[in-house]
Design a protein around this nucleic acid. Structure first.
Length: 649
DNA sequence: GTTTCGGTTCTTTTT
DNA sequence: GAACCGAAAC
């Protein structure tokens, strides 16, 4: 593809960035300005210029984003792009660590702890302290503290003093618990999500030869959503690109919304200082939204203290001003939504063109009920991930145990499915085993049986033969056969006894078997499962599936997406901005404001902002809600107010 | 000593 | 819903 061909598809701003000369490049891409298109063309441009695909590294926020970019690049220049390393930071870290973990004292078959696993491990450490002192911080709080410190690259005690001074009285114990948590993970041969990043960076630091190998491999490093990287991730990228400096970072400081997870805007803001040779490109021409929507977005960020002021320049013909709606309560808000949905349908929009966005999952309750009642199809990016649900994890523990016999957590989970067996029984059985599970070893089998009480032992008999299958056979095809057998021999019965929605869960498991079967080995499958995101796993809703449906989503999960018509629910002070982030987070209001900016800029044609007057909490009370401060700050002339009206049909 | 069950409480955002 | 806590049941 020639330069001329690229220039046909890109505007001058985009073209300049996509075809920029080697060296550090900062692309400031405001919302809806064709950031993805520019990155896709950059990749195509590089491959076109003779860079081998496997020497390009493309880091994105989700695996889905990487997949989509590579698909679009393929459409552009054919499958010459296959072989590009693309995915999340965690994926890259995992891929590298699987290969070199022994260099930093880990086995290559370390297991990955998801949030629930990590919480379990932390809870063990905390239990006895809670007995001594009822007030001792809960496992979730401790995990958040440790995680925040690690991701910001700050020592835990310094982090405590700076961000959680009220917990300083427990300082010593917190440090001890954190150390025990780390030690326990070591003993389990396990890494949590943060560890993947920590140890990847440590690997680079302590093994220069390994670092050099990847520096030589990746001639070009491209990072999407750079405003949401944390210091560890920035360090990873800096190291990888240290040799040649061919590092392109793309981001928008107005859209940084992951500060609570350790993302540090300074990575982006200080990029020009860290890379003095860097060339900066700005994308400000917006192709997405009608001018009236951009007016609101621009007004919202006009007073923001961020460094790179950007103004969205519209290209679209004028459209309606954003609608400001003040329903009485959540139910009336839902009725208003239904009414608009009906109108949109009449005007020719498909359900897939519509999105209802909100700050937190529980804000969607009344919306869901109303849509159910009206039989309007919707998909929800749910709070619980498919792969984090109990039944999915139960079944995966069989695979984990087969693939990684030393995985104590998997063994424990499996044992606790047996009738009359709890944590103590699982612990007892494991302590009698040689530190690993060996179905072929009679002594090991006997050890387990001796720890189980009769009903548990009886049930175990149905599971044991599956675990005794020869490993390579059991684990072929992503372990699909083993899962299938386990479900029919044991779990189907268990599910019916345990869950009132057993049938639905068993359907999930069938889907899991199909999904697993698409992998060569169970190890590969398990690796992927642990690092999948909500967005990655979302159900197919495209036209070809025939599943035309409205999207309900948190603003966080709507990042990077767009819809012709968008309604934002619960835009009231306390809900959005959330009072918790205002009170508990450093810089909370600024980040909430950016979140509002992100939500507004999702809409193409029509935007509705809903601010119910009251909220009715569980206890039967009534809470008055003022309109969100972000709405109040914006000149009223930029909105069209929807006056008092009956929303009920 | 363990497990299970029933009642209570609280929901931010997620790799 | 689901996670936690205390008390009954095994």
């Amino acid at each position: 593809m020639s330069l001329a061909a690229h220039s046909q598809n890109l505007n001058p701003e985009q073209l300049a960035a996509a075809t920029a000369p080697d060296g550090p490049i900062l692309v400031l891409a405001a919302a809806g300005t064709g950031k993805t298109r520019t990155l896709v063309h950059r990749v195509a441009w590089l491959v076109d210029r003779g860079i081998a695909p496997d020497r390009i590294l493309l880091l994105t926020f989700t695996n889905k984003a990487a997949r989509e970019m590579l698909e679009r690049a393929t459409a552009l220049i054919g499958n010459t792009v296959s072989g590009i390393w693309g995915g999340t930071f965690h994926h890259l870290a995992n891929r590298i660590l699987r290969r070199h973990a022994p260099r930093i004292g880990f086995a290559s078959d370390y297991t990955i702890l998801d949030r629930e696993d990590a919480r379990g491990v932390m809870a063990e450490r905390v239990r006895e302290r809670t007995k001594r002192d009822r007030e001792f911080p809960k496992p979730d709080v401790l995990l958040a503290l440790v995680g925040a410190a690690v991701n910001s690259g700050i020592a835990l005690d310094a982090h405590l003093a700076a961000r959680a001074p009220e917990l300083l009285v427990y300082g010593d114990d917190i440090l001890k618990v954190a150390a025990e948590y780390a030690e326990r993970k070591r003993r389990l041969g396990a890494m949590d999500f943060d560890d993947l990043l920590v140890f990847a960076v440590r690997l680079f630091e302590t093994c220069p030869d390994v670092l050099e190998r990847y520096q030589r491999q990746f001639l070009h490093v491209l990072v999407d959503e750079y405003q949401d990287t944390n210091p560890l991730q920035a360090a990873m990228v800096d190291r990888l690109a240290a040799g040649h400096g061919n590092l392109m970072v793309v981001g928008d400081d107005f859209q940084s919304i992951y500060g609570w997870r350790g993302a540090d805007l300074r990575n982006l803001l200080s990029f020009p200082e860290r890379y003095p040779r860097c060339a900066t490109y700005r994308l400000e021409t917006n192709y997405r939204s009608v001018p009236a929507i951009l007016d609101v977005a621009n007004a919202c960020m006009a007073g923001a203290p961020e460094q790179f002021q950007k103004t969205l320049r519209p290209t679209r013909e004028p459209g309606p001003k954003p609608f400001l709606v003040r329903p009485r309560d959540g139910d009336e808000q839902a009725c208003y939504a239904v009414q608009q949905i009906r109108r949109w349908r009449r005007e020719g929009y498909r359900y897939g063109d519509m999105a209802l966005l909100y700050r937190a999952h529980f804000h969607s309750l009344e919306l869901q009920m109303a849509l159910d009642r009206e039989h309007i199809p919707y998909v929800l990016t749910s709070g619980i991930r498919f792969f984090e649900q109990a039944h999915i994890k139960d079944v995966c523990s069989v695979l984990r145990l087969l693939a990684f016999p030393a995985d104590e957590l998997a063994f424990s989970r499996l044992v606790q499915l047996l009738p009359g067996a709890g944590p103590k029984t699982a612990q007892k059985a494991w302590s009698r085993m040689p530190g690993r599970f060996a179905a072929a070893d009679p002594a090991c089998r006997e050890a387990i049986r001796s720890a189980l009480r009769p009903p548990a032992a009886e049930a175990w008999k149905t599971i044991e033969p599956i675990l005794a299958t020869e490993k390579t056979t059991a684990l072929a095809h992503g372990g699909a056969d083993a899962v299938d057998q386990f479900v029919s021999a044991f779990y189907e019965h268990y599910a019916h006894l345990t869950y009132e929605n057993a049938e639905q869960r068993l359907e999930d498991l069938q889907a899991l078997v199909d999904y697993a079967a698409r992998h060569a080995s169970a190890e590969e499958f398990l690796n992927e499962v642990a690092l999948l995101t909500n967005v990655d796993a979302e159900p197919e809703t495209d036209q070809e599936e025939g599943g035309d449906a409205i999207r309900l989503s948190t603003v966080h999960q709507a990042k990077g997406l767009e819809w012709p018509v968008v309604l934002i629910a619960w835009l009231t002070d306390g809900m959005f901005p959330s009072s918790r982030s205002l009170n508990e987070t450093f810089d909370g209001e600024a980040e909430e404001r950016r979140l509002f900016y992100v939500s507004v800029t999702r809409a193409k044609d029509e935007l509705h902002l809903c601010m119910p007057e009251v909220r009715r909490p569980r206890d039967g009370g009534v809470l008055f809600c003022s309109p969100s401060r972000f709405v109040r700050e914006i000149p009223p002339a930029l909105f069209k107010s929807v006056g008092a009206m009956t929303y009920y049909d």
